[in-house]
Write a protein that binds this DNA or RNA. Structure first.
Length: 420
RNA sequence: GGGGGAGUGUCCCGAGCGGCAAAGGGGGCGGACUGUAAAUCCGCUGGCUGACGCCUUCGUAGGUUCGAGUCCUACCUCCCCCA
């Protein structure tokens, strides 16, 4: 399956994580004979990590799992600059306060995948703000800047793309790759880190770091990139009707997260099981081979396993149970997302339109109107045909809730709120 | 510096003789069919209104006109050619 002899590279390769590796033989040999240290950098542009970050996180997970030391590098410093790779326009700059706040949300997520010192493991969480924020400009130019050829930098895709399209590329962004390269060297010096991993769009930036390490410290550093993951039908990972699929439970509930994976396309099941669960490959092979409706079993396992990694086994099982009662038994499950409606409002009667907006299904009454015309909205599993329909306490089921549905997959329980 | 062209429905691309809430795609959402899949077909894809209708939208600001995405002026941004 793979020609790698080290546990680390063999695992990554056979699970589909590897796109490109610099000097694969040398790295393989090294990883076989000793514990190596490697890192991946993460942006702090959002308040939570999302499904797109999952792939790199899993690489760090396997790194630790196969006996090495992973470093999750928070881009507290580089996020202040903004990576131009793969973007047409410069990203909006975030305030330092926002970056710090975002960082806070990350640690808990990483702790679910990696064992840091407080959990008795060797994983490291670093923040490049620690060394970037205090850099002295002139010193930095003389020590680091001299090793960078502008001629070469102009040839990098991330830069060239912008220039070719006559898109603005500020000097600030132009420096991003220099800083990222410097990060690599800094981590090498601090932790003996010799490997940087990342998405395939990071290749150029990583190579810059390798070059810098060789020039400054005569170090042999390595690059490993992962393929860009899309669904079989070509869509980018991690988007749903409601937006990005975040890893924080307060942004995307375990139930919704489970649903996201449950709705994986047939053709992706095997690949995703390998990438996003830690099930043994033999088991995955068996699941991916299921045909027709049977592959739904594999999807449920994918959903439960993937959810368990992020939200814990109990939450995953609960999401699975909720899905089972909702979709397979067709009954009202208490595990569905609930929306509280003040009791007075309910007594006075609330229109379906307002309820649908409250539930987050629609943004305007016009949308609700169209949705009803399209047969999309149901109350307690019966189709709503009239825009005039008003809901009140008589519509409460024996469980004391009103089940409001949008389409066949999105359900919400309206629950009278007695407090406040 | 001179000449020519372009900016359209706040997701993207893109048509648009002065009557336009504005063609057509893509994407998205929903329905049918299925297996909570894919493919396919159908519907929807500015806001308010029960409805007549009203309001807001075509780079920005003015102007002409009963009426402007469309014509005129200035400005901004981008592309191409000449220098």
């Amino acid at each position: 399956m793979s020609t790698y002899k080290s546990d680390f590279l063999h695992t990554l390769a056979s699970r589909g994580f590897i796109h490109q590796v610099s000097e694969p033989e040398a790295l393989d040999t090294l990883a076989r004979s000793s514990a190596i240290t490697g890192y991946i950098g993460f942006d702090c542009t959002a308040a939570s990590l999302h499904v797109g970050s999952l792939l790199p996180i899993m690489m760090l997970y396997w790194m630790q799992e196969t006996g090495h030391r992973p470093i999750a590098l928070m881009g507290g410093g580089t996020t202040r600059v903004g990576d131009p790779s793969g973007k047409d326009e410069s990203r909006q700059l975030l305030t330092d306060a926002a970056i710090t706040a975002n960082l806070g949300g990350f640690r808990a997520v990483f702790a679910k995948f990696l064992k840091f010192a407080d959990a008795g493991g060797n994983a490291v969480m670093a923040n490049n703000a620690d060394w970037l924020n205090t850099l002295n400009y002139i010193d930095f130019l003389r020590d680091i800047g001299r090793h960078f050829s502008v001629n070469r930098m102009l040839a990098f895709d991330s830069v060239k793309l912008r220039l070719d399209r006559q898109q603005e590329l500020s000097f600030l962004e132009f420096n991003y790759m220099v800083l990222q390269a410097y990060d690599f060297v800094e981590l090498y010096r601090r932790y003996g880190c010799i490997l940087q991993m990342g998405g395939s769009d990071q290749w150029g930036n990583i190579i810059s770091g390798i070059d810098l390490g060789r020039r400054l410290d005569n170090a042999q550093l390595f690059a490993l990139t992962a393929p860009l993951i899309t669904t079989s039908s070509g869509a980018k990972m991690g988007k749903t009707a409601a937006g990005a699929v975040w890893l924080n439970a307060d942004l995307v509930s375990p139930y919704d997260y489970w649903q996201y994976w449950r709705n994986t396309e047939d053709a992706d099941v095997g690949r995703f099981l390998k990438l996003f669960t830690v099930l043994p490959l033999g088991e995955i092979e068996r699941l991916a081979a299921l045909k027709g409706a049977e592959i739904n079993e594999a999807k449920k396992i994918l959903a439960t396993e993937a959810t368990a990694l992020v939200h814990g086994r109990a939450a995953a099982e609960q999401a699975a149970a909720t899905a089972r009662t909702t979709f397979e038994e067709g009954t009202v499950s208490k595990g569905l997302p609930t929306v509280r409606v003040p009791r007075q409002t309910l007594e006075g009667g609330i229109t379906v339109a307002d309820a649908a907006i409250l539930a987050g299904f629609c943004n305007s009454k016009g949308e609700v109107r169209r949705a009803i015309a399209n047969n999309s909205i149901a109350v307690n599993d019966s189709r709503v045909t009239s825009f005039e329909l008003t809901l009140d306490e008589k519509d409460l089921t024996t469980e004391g809730v009103i089940k409001l549905s949008f389409g066949r997959k999105r359900h919400v329980l309206l629950k009278p709120a007695y407090e406040e």
